[in-house]
């Protein structure tokens, strides 16, 4: 089924972000792929052709771009696509065991979907959340951070029970009123508000 037929305003919005030239049109490729994938969980063959036509390219070229990135899928993913960071800081914090736990608990491997269609899993590389390792990304929604065994178990139970997924928003920055806090949580050094802006 074509995806964008009844979404002309959305299409116009995406194309308006780039120059109105042939090259500019092509820049819309990634946002278009993301739209379809977020709606359908993957990008089916016919939508690849649809997007190719929209940007004035070919399906082969679109696939070649898709295969370059780890985010785009050509086969369906679960409702909740759990992407486990496997890179060093997360590995040191136990991401291998976290992965094994998910494989055991869900009974699937990479690229598979649970029979109820709820979950799929994928190992991914550093997600820029090393300070809150180990961590996973859930679909295109957000991160679950500082994951313990108990936290992972609870989260799976909640998602199975139909709860909506709420991402974490940990900010590991230790500053109060413009002044940093040392490891003993004491204010240390100067304060931002003591700086004098230049006159002009």
């Amino acid at each position: 089924m074509l995806y964008f037929t009844d979404k002309q305003t959305q299409l116009a919005d995406i194309f308006s972000r780039y120059p109105h030239t042939e090259q500019g049109r092509r820049s819309a490729l990634m946002p278009l792929l993301r739209e379809v994938q977020n709606a359908l969980g993957h990008v089916p063959e016919e939508n690849i052709a649809e997007i190719a036509a929209l940007i004035g390219s070919t399906a082969t070229e679109v696939k070649s771009v898709m295969s370059f990135y780890s985010t785009y899928h050509t086969t369906p993913t679960g409702k909740w696509h759990l992407q486990v960071c496997a890179t060093l800081s997360c590995a040191i914090a136990g991401s291998d065991e976290l992965w094994d736990y998910l494989v055991d608990e869900l009974g699937i491997g990479a690229g598979e979907v649970t029979p109820d269609g709820l979950f799929s899993i994928q190992k991914v590389e550093c997600l820029g959340s090393c300070g809150t390792a180990p961590m996973i990304q859930v679909s295109d929604v957000g991160f679950s951070e500082c994951i313990t065994r108990r936290k992972m178990r609870t989260q799976l139970e909640q998602l199975r029970a139909g709860a909506n997924y709420l991402p974490d928003t940990v900010v590991p920055v230790f500053i109060q009123d413009g002044q940093q806090l040392n490891a003993l949580e004491q204010k240390i050094g100067g304060k931002y508000s003591e700086l004098e802006p230049l006159k002009f």
């Binding site: 002044q179 240390i188 050094g189 931002y192």
Partner: peptide, 15 residues
């Protein structure tokens, strides 16, 4: 950054 003359700026508004 322990020096009182050091004033954080990039993250000053966090929190």
């Amino acid at each position: 950054a322990l020096d009182s003359r050091f004033k954080p700026s990039l993250y000053a508004r966090v929190g």
